[in-house]
Amino acid sequence: MSSAAPEVALEISGVWKYYGDFPALRDIAFNVLPGSTLALLGRNGAGKTTLLRILAGLSKPSRGSVTIHGANVREESTRRRIGVLGHGISLYDELSAFENLRLFAKLYGIANPARRIDEMLERTDLVRVRDGLVREFSRGMRQRLAVARVFLHDPEVLLLDEPFTALDDRAIAVLQALLNDMHQRGRTIVMSTHQLREALEAATHVAMIQRGQIVYAGERRQEMVDDTGWLYRTYGEN
């Protein structure tokens, strides 16, 4: 989270986003170091999802810029390096689990896709429903398949928007195991969340956003973990 770092995974410089006249993001600027896990915190409507969508290249900033490993996020080579999990599962109900993953494996140009798909289905405990249509899946199975999709191409940078919300226990366990694995392998993770305890325990860095502005960006401190209300009391409005 230091601008003096020799290399940054994500560089966010003076990002503004307007919806009409309303500034949803105001002059957001911070860096994310490679291998760090950033918890992006803030109340509902603070601008977390807007910022994550800009980081993912799904929306363009009105002003400012975002680079991932020095490259524009809309470049195809950059998008190959990122994995995005938004609010939806981003899977097709009419396709089977295997067909859904094969679609994204082809789009990401994964070598030996069948082996990688089977590996991810195994890690998410979905092998037995490999050829079942997603529309016939339970909610938990759909969520685990969504997790498998995000990790399928082994992204270097993960952008997760409230990843634990609405997940069942099994999906949470699968996601946490995959996130731990990614962190140990030096991948960069940015996740917005309302589950402060889990996020702060996993995070190496924290950014807090309030009314579209960053009010804290830095290393995670022990008092944040010991008292999850500390951050909001210290840097928040209330």
């Binding site: 993912a56 290249g57 195809e76 190959r80 990122i82 939806g88 899977l91 994204f104 789009l107």
Partner: peptide, 15 residues
């Protein structure tokens, strides 16, 4: 739009 599939396609490395 169903399940936000468009986001996954736009995030994927295809023009």
């Amino acid at each position: 739009l169903q399940n936000d599939c468009l986001d996954a396609l736009l995030a994927a490395p295809l023009p």
